[in-house]
Amino acid sequence: MATIKIKQIGSPIRRPAAQRKMLIGLGLNKMHRVVELKDTPEVRGTIARLPHLVAVID
């Protein structure tokens, strides 16, 4: 299965608790961290809800 690289570009400070939990669910918790996850609809949906905090790396 294909993978996708995600980088955290925004801080979770002063963000709703739900957005912080989504970042932790993606495996991110500090600025400029990069994680590689399976490219699933669930991961894509989470990324779509956090466009101001994460970026997809090619």
Rank of each mutant, 00 (worst) to 15 (best):
M1D: 08
A2K: 15
T3N: 10
K5T: 07
I6D: 06
K7E: 14
K7D: 08
Q8F: 11
G10K: 13
G10L: 11
P12S: 15
P12Y: 13
P12M: 13
I13L: 13
R14K: 15
R14S: 14
R15Y: 09
R15W: 09
R15I: 03
A17V: 12
A17N: 09
A18Y: 13
A18S: 15
A18W: 14
A18D: 14
Q19P: 03
R20E: 08
R20I: 14
K21R: 15
M22E: 02
M22A: 11
L23D: 00
L23C: 04
L23I: 05
I24G: 01
L26S: 00
L28W: 00
L28C: 00
K30N: 03
K30Y: 06
H32D: 14
R33D: 03
V34I: 15
E36R: 06
E36V: 08
L37G: 02
K38R: 13
K38P: 13
D39M: 07
D39P: 05
D39W: 06
T40C: 05
P41W: 09
P41H: 12
V43A: 05
R44C: 05
T46N: 11
T46F: 03
I47E: 05
A48E: 07
R49E: 09
H52N: 14
I57D: 01
I57V: 15
D58S: 11
D58I: 04
D58K: 15
D58G: 09
